[in-house]
Amino acid sequence: MGRLGAMTRPSGSAERNARICLLLEVTPSLRLRDVARDLGVAEMTLRRDAASGKAGFICQGGYLVRGRGTDTYDFEEQMRRASEAKLAAADHAAALVPEGACVFLDTGTTVPHLARALTQRRVKRVVTHCLTSAELLHGRTSAEVEFIGGRLQSRTRSCHPPDPLGLLRPLGIEIGFLSAGGLWENRELSCSHEYEVAMKRAVLELAAENWVVMDSSKIGLRRAVRFASLDEVSGVVTEHGVGETPARGVQTG
């Protein structure tokens, strides 16, 4: 982030917010405490600006990210939908991670909640191509964080390299957590974008365990792109627990 303090401090919220939005044009996120320090305002002031719905940015944990009218905002809105269920699913998934493990975190709107949960667990390494998960882990965990770069897809805030299998193979991934937009007829796992599939398939090939993490509202849905069948994964984790989806009767093996 550029040093805002080197410039004249803004005289009001409109000028302050415009400056923040300008910086967010060139970086996906800004650390809240750094922005507050450089602008000479309290962190709570920036949180109130973000919550107003008029600032052009929102507050995600300790970071400011682009707001209304952008792909990033759409992603954040999806994360907030069924947020209690997503948080519960993430907690159940975190309980599956053994101490010292090397973990892969997929993109999606539930898995980043798992990234937050993993900051409280002793894992060796977290591998991800999701910007949101990487930001949540940065500075909050003693684990190694390996971010996989590639072509940025703003809708899912994720990067996709041309050869994910080749990049992931040396990293020793032991347990993968994958997202899914739908689980159709208790057997077909699907997502919304074709570009997501190569990374998911690479993890399925490499990791000894692969868990799909999602809230139970996705059960019974079918998205545009199929990426796996239920028997290819270790199980499904929802807010009800591991393989426990009484609302739709899904059984996982």
Rank of each mutant, 00 (worst) to 15 (best):
G2C: 06
G2E: 15
R3T: 11
L4V: 07
G5D: 15
A6F: 12
A6R: 13
P10V: 08
N17W: 07
A18V: 08
T27F: 00
P28D: 12
L30A: 09
R31F: 13
D34I: 14
V35C: 08
D38I: 07
G40I: 00
M44E: 15
T45G: 00
L46W: 04
R47G: 00
R48A: 11
R48G: 02
S52V: 08
G53E: 08
F57T: 06
I58P: 04
G61W: 06
L64R: 02
R66V: 07
R66L: 12
G67P: 12
G67S: 02
R68C: 06
G69N: 11
T70R: 09
D71A: 12
T72I: 12
Y73P: 03
Y73L: 01
D74L: 14
F75Y: 13
R81S: 14
R81L: 12
A82Y: 14
A90K: 00
A94Q: 01
P98T: 01
F104M: 06
L105E: 00
D106N: 11
V111Y: 02
V111L: 07
L114Y: 03
T119W: 05
T119L: 05
R121T: 11
R122M: 12
K124Q: 10
H129Q: 05
H129S: 01
L131I: 12
A134L: 05
A134I: 03
E135T: 13
L136E: 04
L137M: 09
G139F: 09
S142A: 14
V145F: 01
E146V: 15
I148H: 05
L152T: 02
L152W: 02
Q153V: 08
S154H: 10
R155N: 06
R157V: 03
S158F: 00
C159H: 01
P162V: 02
L168W: 04
L168N: 01
R169H: 08
P170V: 04
G172F: 07
G172Q: 11
G172E: 09
I173Y: 05
E174T: 04
G176C: 06
F177V: 07
F177I: 09
G181W: 00
G181P: 07
E185P: 03
E185N: 13
L189T: 11
E196I: 06
A198M: 11
V203D: 02
V203L: 07
A208C: 13
V212L: 01
V212S: 01
S216E: 14
G220T: 14
G220V: 08
V225F: 08
F227G: 04
S229Y: 12
S229I: 05
D231P: 09
V233Y: 02
S234R: 14
V237D: 03
V237N: 02
H240V: 06
G241T: 06
T245S: 10
A247Y: 14
